[in-house]
């Protein structure tokens, strides 16, 4: 495996003002490293959805990003309530978000489906009362 760059970010609970900052930083780094716009777009969208989920549902958490020449690995570990039914959560349109969140334009039940759509591999591990970990891999070669 080629050179690796590791980044770690904290995502704060309920902090909508900063949601998107992590994805934005990673996007900048990937741009500087010369990754293709398609790869960068996939990473930015998948990560932003993850960030928003952590802010809305999961009391915040940490995001680790590992950048390799052939893939980008994103690990989002939250401190939330866990997902009771992953299959249901993966259905487009299913959401447990409240009306306040919906008014902001979120909570349409597209977070996890978008993360799946924009990544090449997605793995969710969750424990009720403890949290959820979403691992995304985005391959660099199309």
């Amino acid at each position: 495996m080629a050179d690796v760059m590791k980044l770690q970010f904290e995502v704060n609970d309920g902090d909508f003002t900063r949601a998107g900052e992590t994805s934005s930083k990673v996007k900048k780094t990937l741009t500087q490293l010369g990754f293709s716009p398609i790869v960068i777009r996939k990473v930015a969208i998948a990560m932003y959805e993850g960030e928003i989920n952590m802010v809305i549902h999961a009391n915040g958490g940490t995001i680790d990003v590992e950048i390799y020449s052939e893939k980008i690995l994103i690990v989002m570990q939250d401190k939330g309530p866990g997902i009771a039914d992953i299959e249901k959560a993966m259905q487009a349109g299913f959401s447990t978000a409240d009306s306040k969140v919906r008014e902001l334009g979120f909570g349409a039940g597209m977070g996890l489906p978008n993360m799946k759509k924009y990544s090449d591999e997605m793995e969710i591990t969750t424990e009720i009362g403890k949290g959820t970990c979403v691992k995304l891999t985005i391959n660099v070669k199309e």
Partner: peptide
């Protein structure tokens, strides 16, 4: 106005029309 949808539909150089006013 749905941000998740906008995120996957708006591409570079597009004009995005919305009634959302929040910072997201």
């Amino acid at each position: 106005d749905l941000l998740s949808l906008a995120m996957s539909k708006v591409t570079a150089e597009n004009v995005w029309i919305t009634i959302q006013t929040n910072m997201n």
